[in-house]
Structure formats: C-alpha cells, structure tokens
C-alpha cells in the first residue's frame, strides 16, 4: 500500500472528524478529556514532523553565517538578530499547534519544545504559564509528562517551572513521572541555602522509594541521588574540600591537600 495513501487517509479523517470539546485553546475548566482518536494522533504526529522540518531548515539558514565564516575573527564579528531567531519566529506557530492538536502525543512533545523555546526568549515568560496550565489539565495522568520534567532543573528558574514540578510530584499517578519531578525539584532547591533541607528530604525519599526508577539508559535515580547527597553534605560553599588522591597525566601521584596554603582553582575539564 503506498505510503502517501495512508497519509492522505489519516489527514482526511482528521479533517472530517468532528472536533471533541477539549480541542479549544488552553481549557480553563477541568472538564473530562475526550478520547483522542487514532486518526487524530497520526495527523498530529505527521503535522509536528513537518513543522519540525521547517524549524530545522530555519535554524540552518539562521546559523549560515557561522558555517560560511572562514576565520575566528570572522566568526566573532557575526551579529545575529535575536528577533529573527527561529525560537522567536516559530513560537506562535508551535503554540497554535498545541491548541489544534490538544490531547495528542505530538501535542505533549510540542509542549516540551514550546517550554524550551519560551525559556530561551526573555519576552515569552507568559507562555510558560500557558504551557503548564495545558499540561496540568490535559496530561497530568499521562506518563509522558516525565519527559517534560526529567531535565526541568536545567530550565531557567521560573515560578511556572516550580508549579509544574510540584503538581507532577503531588498528582501524577505514575511513579516514573513522580521520581523525575522529585529529582528536578531537589536539584532546584539545592541551589539556595534556605531550601536545602527540603532538597535533602526529596533525595532521601527518592533513595527510599524510587531508587529503581530509570533516569537515563542504565542509570537509576538511586545511582544519581548518592552523588547529590554527597554534594549537599560535603561540596557546599564553606565545606572543607574532600581529599583527592590520584594519578597525574604523567603517572605520578598527587593529592589535593598538598596545595594547602595556596588559593586553588579546581577545574574539571575536557577538550571536547
């Protein structure tokens, strides 16, 4: 069966199917979600792929000066217009996508991208709140929210980010999603002295109840949390630096404490 026929069929189905009531902009009430049909899922996935293709092409074009520059001086002289960044240009269209395809898997994926886009653009802070509202109404029961919260501690700090994490931690029926939310929260709370005790409580809870949950690949939250607890207890400002005894690049032994009496810049680095 030709591929194009399947696509045509699903797109046609999606266009002719009556829109369920939840398909309106950022539902304000907690009305029960309507079932999303298979055809709507397929159409949304295809539409997102097309949109992403256009965004990728826009990035290629936006970054073209860097590829064409021949010397470091030329590269340093490049001044890109932040208003023409694909992040800014495509944000409205991505938001529109999440509205049209509300409730689909592709919508959740798009929401994740919108969140990253909005986080990178100073003037789009309001978008984060919209995204979080949508997630909490349409996807709080969906295990896919774990993708949204797993690396949320790398998002620029915002009230919306914290609201999302606390809601997923409290309300998700999936322990994988709750584990991701607890961990991201613990990372964010560890940054401030006042909230470090709460961070520690979350880490202890992860270790006790969620140690087996996968973070990425072979790494579990149990593996991760050990390092974070050590960091909270021994690697904060004001703590005596833990001893390092190891081999230098030339093979000879060295220890960090041998540098006592000097101010030391300890630099973890790699030339990649």
């Amino acid at each position: 069966m030709p591929m194009s026929w399947i696509l045509t069929l699903s797109v046609t189905l999606a266009l002719t199917a009556p829109l369920p009531p939840s398909l309106h902009a950022f539902p304000a009430d907690d009305s029960p979600q309507s079932e999303v049909t298979e055809a709507q899922q397929t159409a949304a996935t295809a539409a997102l792929a097309k949109l992403q293709e256009r965004i990728n092409a826009a990035w290629e074009e936006y970054m073209l000066p860097y590829r064409e520059a021949k010397t470091d001086e030329e590269r340093e002289a490049i001044q890109l217009d932040p208003k023409k960044s694909p992040t800014v240009v495509f944000l409205p269209e991505m938001l529109e996508f999440t509205r049209i395809h509300a409730g689909t898997d592709a919508c959740l994926e798009a929401l994740q991208e919108v969140m990253m886009m909005a986080a990178r653009d100073e003037e789009s802070g309001w978008v984060l709140d919209k995204v979080v509202d949508t997630v909490l109404v349409d996807f709080i029961e969906d295990e896919g929210v774990k993708e949204l919260v797993r690396f949320a501690h790398y998002n620029p700090p915002s009230a919306a980010n914290l609201r999302l994490l606390r809601a997923v931690a409290d309300r998700s029926p999936h322990r994988t999603a709750r584990a991701s939310a607890y961990y991201s929260l613990s990372k964010i709370l560890a940054a401030e002295k006042d909230t470090r005790a709460e961070s520690r409580r979350l880490l202890d809870r992860l270790l006790k109840e969620y140690a087996d949950v996968t973070f990425v690949r072979q790494t579990t939250y149990g593996d991760l949390v050990q390092g974070d607890i050590f960091e909270l207890e021994h690697l904060q400002i004001g703590h005596v630096a833990p001893e390092i005894i190891g081999k230098k690049i030339d093979g000879n032994l060295m220890q960090l404490s041998a540098f006592r009496g000097k101010v030391v810049l300890l630099d973890f680095w790699g030339d990649w």
Binding site: L235, Q236, I237, G238, H239, V240, A241, S257, F259, R260, G261, K262, V263, V264, L265, L266, D267, F268, W269, G270, W272
Partner: peptide, 14 residues
C-alpha cells in the same frame, strides 16, 4: 564540563 571550584588557602570551598 567545565565545572570549577575555588578553594581558599585553608582548603575550604568558597
């Protein structure tokens, strides 16, 4: 990477 710490002459992370 890079991650950096500045340690004072008494060995305390500052």
């Amino acid at each position: 990477w890079p991650t950096t710490y500045v340690i004072d002459s008494s060995g305390v992370i500052r």
